[in-house]
Design a protein around this nucleic acid. Structure first.
Lengths: 320, 320
DNA sequence: CCCGTTGTAGCAACCGGTTGCACAAACCTT
DNA sequence: AAGGTTTGTGCAACCGGTTGCTACAACGGG
């Protein structure tokens, strides 16, 4: 059994409250007593039980981070950035993955409640209403979603999509396929919104799709058949799957169809052709989300981070 | 404020112990009372506080999973498998990443202690001695490391390395570079052990290295200069970095040098040339680790999973 | 020398639950 | 109808800490 505060108190003939104060308010205890307590604690290998402490103080010094799919290379850099930032603030981050399933997401949030001081909700698939309800029990910072009155870190997807469409238009593309993501994705909606508002384009929507290579792979035939000369994909994974699917049909990228992704993940850079993409500021977002959670007592500050178009090899001039 | 058990008790004129039993031992409470309690609880949006419950029961129904680098594509499938398996057992998995830093690893374990029922320690970088000491405070299952008396899930790296070396020998390679991983990696030691015992080979060791693309990239010049015709890399990420580095020096793979990795991650399959690799059973390992943690009360059952050589395009006949 | 500070440590209530035990009412026996 | 079981609920201690209040001693000032 691990030593408790009582064991330490007994070991050096002092009341538990004195031991407690030795750790949480050292200036209130006599230096001589303090060192006796510390010696005894060290001797017994005592560590304060964080769960018990949280019960009275209401603070755990951990935060939860929920992502839709940890296997998507977009998330790890964000996760690592959040962890590093939190560590600098004496916090720890517990990560969990929802498998893109809103029910799992809800359950994870409920589990985190009272075990963390707040939750970073990254690319949630739950409805706004549900998120608002759950926010009564635990503070949130939402990443990649706008919910009124709730602190959020947004990436300027609309701007990125605009740049991407302008790039394609500049290359002479008019008929463009929009391969969207899963239901409930704010990012997907933003993209569609911008695209729909852009004049002079002939858009074909495909969706919803899984936000993975498999998702891209499986829409490839439809995209090929629709007569579009360019594709704006929900993310890089979908774009890569799409390129793979097109290759299997002997359709060359960018010679016959141009493809743009979102995120700027590593496999996109290694791919042949190298993927043209809209870079998302994942690292900054992870950091900002942590700061926002610690600063705001739940007030709705919103940070919007810029995106950037990175032109590589998967886009080219439209065919006649 | 979230409703507590007291609020529910007051709301339906019953003692808190009755409310408690309604949730944790329903058969002990009268159906009529039970439904009154449930109604009140539902009305107030009451959820038992898991941290408080853990304090008395000693069980949290979560487990921790600590990995060395979440950005390494090897880990996410393992993580997801563990999460899925745990979910089926009514458990939740909290993931954390150590950034390959033993000090962070230790701190994370300490943080997890008492907040989880056990920890899955994947590819730890801590010393055996330290792990054994920490095991007094929280049950472990170790993945990719053998520590006496401690439950472990091992992947048969030795066998995989043997297959890889035989494959290379069969292609006529004699002078082989071994690009190892970080200090403290059991996997790395296993590989070196097997290689050193294999007769008829001329081995050159390079290490320690970061287990990432950057690590592979930075040893590329030395490897190129050492006269080896083939390389066994610590993992696929290192292998990919190495290939990239060699390409930058205009050294073709597999024409001039053959490269084998370990893990079988997705980017290796997408790479040109497609990577020859030793596939590691990450998904099985994640599942097994969860089961081992829940079964063994800390007893040292060890599971060893087989690996398999997957020959793709990054290996070829040795040059004369 | 008395009194008001100040510093130090103990007491006890509390956080939100769980659980062994006691006890009364309702149910079965015979 | 008396006596023995069940069944259902309350009581209170407990898990491992924290914290407001109190008590007491030593100290400094007037």
């Amino acid at each position: 059994m691990a030593a408790t505060i009582k064991d330490v108190a007994r070991a050096c003939g002092v009341h538990v409250s004195t031991v407690s104060r030795t750790f949480s308010a050292p200036h209130l205890v006599n230096p001589a007593t303090r060192s006796r307590v510390l010696a005894a604690a060290d001797d017994l290998g005592y560590r304060p039980n964080r769960a018990a402490r949280a019960l009275t103080t209401g603070r755990t010094f951990n935060m939860g981070l929920i992502v839709a799919d940890i296997a998507n290379p977009f998330f790890p850099p964000l996760i690592k950035a959040a962890q590093a930032q939190a560590r600098g603030r004496d916090y720890h981050v517990f990560v969990a993955d929802t498998d893109e399933d809103p029910r799992v997401e809800e359950e994870l949030i409920r589990t985190f409640t009272k075990q963390v001081d707040g939750v970073l909700l990254c690319s949630p698939r739950l409805s706004n209403k549900m998120i608002e309800r759950l926010a009564e029990d635990v503070p949130f910072v939402v990443i990649n979603r706008r919910i009124k009155g709730m602190p959020a870190v947004l990436m300027n997807v609309a701007q990125g999509a605009k740049l991407a469409l302008e790039h394609l238009a500049g290359l002479g593309h008019r008929r463009i396929a929009l391969v969207s993501g899963p239901i409930g994705s704010w990012t997907s909606n933003e993209m569609q919104g911008v695209a729909a508002e852009t004049p002079g384009l002939d858009l074909i929507f495909f969706g919803p799709n899984q936000p993975t290579e498999a998702g891209g792979l499986s829409v490839a035939p439809e995209v090929a058949a629709c007569g579009a000369t360019a594709v704006l994909a929900y993310n890089d994974l979908v774009a890569l799957g799409l390129i793979e699917g097109l290759a299997a049909m002997e359709i060359g990228v960018p010679d016959q169809i141009s493809v743009i992704g979102f995120d700027d993940i590593l496999p996109g850079r290694l791919n042949r052709p190298k993927l043209t993409t809209v870079a998302m500021p994942a690292v900054q977002a992870g950091r900002m989300a942590v700061d926002l959670l610690l600063q705001s007592g739940g007030e709705g500050a919103t940070v919007t981070l810029d995106t950037a178009l990175i032109v590589r090899e998967s886009t080219g001039r439209a065919q006649k």
